[in-house]
């Protein structure tokens, strides 16, 4: 027994007295260290409060109320499409980050000759260990994500899940599907092969066709009136910087709203 005063807030004495295991001691030490500086206990309490308020009581869903679970089971697999598009997005993000180690968006040089971007893709496909597989996974997860997103939209439409309290999420979904297509478009411009170049040409034409601000828009998005090295640079930054932040945030909001409003059940 020491002569030092032990009050309610003497956590170390409390730890000695309780004789925790080593794991518990380590965990508590870290928790206390963080809590002393950040007061995370307050935030944990808020989270806990939120969790219980959301989960304790919910109205019976239509299917529960009228015992329809066994009647509409065939809708349920379609309810996985939203998760599948998120999963494909995660797979694409991981494989894309790995591809980013080897890719460089340089397109300067005489036309017809392989540029730096093109050569880094051929390097990935021929030299890097599992590089071909990595590019394949990235490309396929993107394709699968777009397909899943389209089917997800159809499911939401045909089960009437966009109806009244959920209009906002429908609108966010439309923004997300457009951004997904933009993701795909900026992505397939990156190899800077013939397809990329001429797809870029179509994009520039579309931007130029906007009345009044067409030329300004083409300059802003494509950095010129024909596909050029600046175009590739811009598509790269859109693809690996702007779109990931925006799309990830919007997906988080989209899912948070689903969590708050509950899943629109088939009935």
């Amino acid at each position: 027994m020491s002569l030092e005063r032990k009050d309610d807030h003497d956590h170390e004495a409390w730890m000695e007295e309780r004789e925790f295991t080593r794991l518990e001691t380590a965990y508590l030490t870290v928790l206390m260290w963080l809590d002393k500086r950040l007061r995370i206990v307050d935030y944990l309490e808020i989270l806990e409060n939120l969790y219980y308020k959301v989960n304790m009581q919910m109205p019976k869903s239509h299917t529960e109320q009228y015992g329809l679970d066994n009647k509409f089971w065939y809708w349920y697999p379609l309810y996985a499409l939203g998760s599948f598009s998120t999963l494909a997005y995660i797979v694409a993000a991981i494989s894309g980050a790995l591809l980013g180690f080897y890719y460089s968006p340089g397109a300067t040089g005489a036309s017809g000759n392989p540029t730096m971007a093109y050569e880094s893709i051929t390097f990935i496909m021929t030299e890097v260990n599992f590089g071909f597989m990595l590019r394949s996974i990235h490309r396929w997860s993107a394709q699968v994500m777009v397909a899943a997103v389209f089917l997800h939209m159809l499911r939401v439409y045909f089960t009437g899940a966009y109806k009244e309290p959920r209009e906002l999420n429908w609108l966010i979904g439309i923004v997300l599907i457009s951004l997904t297509l933009l993701f795909g478009y900026t992505g397939y411009l990156l190899p800077w092969d013939q397809l990329a170049f001429w797809a870029g040409q179509i994009g520039v034409e579309m931007a130029l066709s906007i009345p009044l601000i067409g030329e300004w828009a083409a300059q802003l998005i494509f950095g010129g009136f024909t596909p050029n090295p600046a175009t590739l640079q811009r598509m790269y930054i859109l693809h690996v910087f702007f779109l990931p932040f925006i799309v990830t945030t919007l997906i988080a909001v989209h899912i948070a709203i689903v969590w708050m409003q509950g899943i629109a059940e088939p009935h």
């Binding site: 000759n113 093109y118 071909f132 394949s136 478009y185 800077w192 397809l195 001429w198």
Partner: peptide, 25 residues
């Protein structure tokens, strides 16, 4: 899918040669 159907890559970009078919994804 990625193992069985790997992607291919076109000829390098060439502003002088318009390919016969231009299609997006």
């Amino acid at each position: 899918l990625s193992a069985t159907l790997p992607p291919h890559i076109d000829a390098p970009a060439n502003s002088g040669v318009t390919p016969p078919t231009i299609l997006p994804d």
